[in-house]
Design a protein around this nucleic acid. Structure first.
Lengths: 208, 208, 208, 208
DNA sequence: CATGAATGAGGTTTCATTCAT
DNA sequence: AATGAATGAAACCTCATTCAT
């Protein structure tokens, strides 16, 4: 709240933005602190005032993205529970399509989660984020189940895991095939698939 | 038939196996050629007789995995087209569950495909593999469409892309949540979802 | 005037001096950056702050010697044009006799100019230095020609090239025969040879 | 004399020819035994049957050139002693102009003579060659002195050293300035300079 | 606080030499 | 004799981190 505090926050935002661009383009290991400092417009030593190591900076960047994703969830669209799920996933896809840094950074975050040296921190944080999303979607579908919008007795946990997985998988596909739009693919594929969890005879109307 | 040929191939297999283990554990960048050489039981220089650089070795490993995946496709299970698709995807999931190196290596391959320095080769190769799988699955579903096992007019390309993406996404989830079984998740989630592409009134019988 | 400027220059001089000693003793290729760093009393990485590669450092050293040779030409001695030429060449020889590093370094510079990898830069720079010396000496002799101190119609370019070549060749001889003094040899041999370009009947008085 | 002997000699000639080309282009240190073997059309191990190390091979090459230069001296031209000296030097220059490998190889030989690791062998061998040439030329001039073709009392040793040095220096100039012909330069410059050692009133007639 | 020069451990790659075939 | 696969010691260069200013 003091002016110092504000400056500090601004400085950190500035550094994180630069780090996002550099890590996205070069990867965590290939990126150098020199490049980050240059992109942020500060001296190399300054990076160490806020982050105690390169890995720390990368983790802070990851955490910032995760916080943002969980702090600003898309508004819940209207409609039946399956429609709401479709709407939410398409909205996430839209964000991914729009922010060109998000996709390569996500690949780097995954790599960090897969690699011995960084695995613990990154995997735990990522699992927490996944759980939050999973819980939210399962809650929506359970509500729909109660209202008769979703068939009873379905393995909702597995279904939600798979739907979230679909987005992650499309991130990879979008990266190797620059023409593929995550949101468009989801908008086309999800309605028929989610028809499968609606009660018989209640297929959604054709989109738009 | 010449002994040289056999030796050379055996030597390369030996190195690739060692590389798989090391790259899986440490990641491409963090892994050192010393570690790979030690794991393979050869001198460092020997690695360079077969592979002209560390990146070359890593790409060869990637290509070997991709070749293997495409060369030994699971046998096509019996049943309607949606059942066949489910069977194939579950089989792939089973393989991923079984081979503990496959998952972290896949994350590294993706990272290589995302990062400037290595992007071109890896992304192209990965896209080719995806295309092959996509083509095979779309073919199955089109056949089902012709036989009335699949509703007409569905966006089969988008659906197949999403289903393949689901597997990739589950790779990530399986890695951060070691209790999650890819095959189990698919076995539970796919049948209801694929009910959505069957003609009305032909939902699959409950699994098993 | 800024302290930085002074430090930087001093640091580079310190490194160049060390490099001169190491390259002279071991040759460009056999010398290691470790040796240079140790001789300069700095860490290896410090060398790369000022010079981007070993070759760069070696070229900087060469350029520094060339600059020095051209920036501090010996004072033009008194006498007729041939006497002036003799005086200049003997002075150069004296410098070569005095600075024990100059001779082996020169051999290394020539080698660098002869070898594919480094040829372009070194040969061009060396040619420029030669041209400057050649121009200066030809100018002196042409002046002497106008004043009647030099016979008319002589191939002054070829003569000057040969005289400069004599110094270079004596560098080699001095190196394999440590007793040979470049300056003494020139002081003895040049007067009779240059008598050959004086007008008939004007031979120089015996030296000293 | 046995067929083995002949084969061996041919094999060594083949290797030396290849080594000359490779060392001339790449320099002694940068050249690799692989390159030499490839150029010679033999396996790398074969090189070690005749030469115990890379340096040994290089020295053998040097020795072969030196032997050749001393074993096949140019025929002594007719004329006065100074004319004979001019003729000999121009002939050496002609050979240097003709054989494009001679010049860069000479620079490499000098470098080897200047560098700690190889100095002893190369410098001694080179000094011996120089002495032989020096002795031959001094002998010619002394003969001329006796016949009155050369002024008495001149420092013939220094003069001959300088004349030999001129050739060596022109090797360097020819290398950095590809248009310069050693023989042409000598043919133009030597006659006036050597006029300086003739008795007064006996200048050579204009060349040709 | 901010800087950026200095450090030096660490990594990739090369290549002379050996030796089993 | 001839081969060429294997070796492993070096060597160049990078870059995360520190710290005096």
């Amino acid at each position: 709240m003091s002016p110092k505090k504000i400056d500090k926050a601004a400085r950190e935002r500035q550094i994180l933005d630069a780090a996002a661009a550099v890590f996205a383009r070069r990867g965590f290991r290939a990126a150098t602190m020199d490049e980050v400092a240059a992109a942020a417009g500060v001296a190399k030593g300054t990076l160490y005032l806020s982050y105690s190591s390169k890995e720390d900076l990368f983790f802070a960047l990851f955490a910032a993205f995760a916080d943002e994703a969980m702090a600003a969830p898309p508004a819940l669209p209207a409609g039946t529970a399956p429609d709401q799920v479709i709407g939410l996933l398409v909205e996430i896809g839209t964000r991914l399509d729009r922010d060109s840094l998000l996709v390569p950074l996500t690949l780097e975050f995954w790599s960090a989660a897969g690699v011995e040296a960084t695995r613990a921190r990154f995997a735990d944080r990522y699992a927490a984020m996944l759980d939050a999303f999973r819980g939210a979607l399962v809650g929506i579908l359970r509500g729909g189940e109660a209202r008769g919008e979703v068939r009873r007795g379905l393995p909702l946990d597995a279904i939600v895991s798979s739907l979230l997985a679909t987005i992650d998988g499309l991130i990879v596909q979008a990266w190797v095939d620059r023409d593929l739009s995550i949101a468009e693919t989801l908008r086309a594929a999800l309605p028929p698939l989610l028809d499968g969890i609606r009660p018989a005879g209640s297929a959604a109307p054709p989109p738009r």
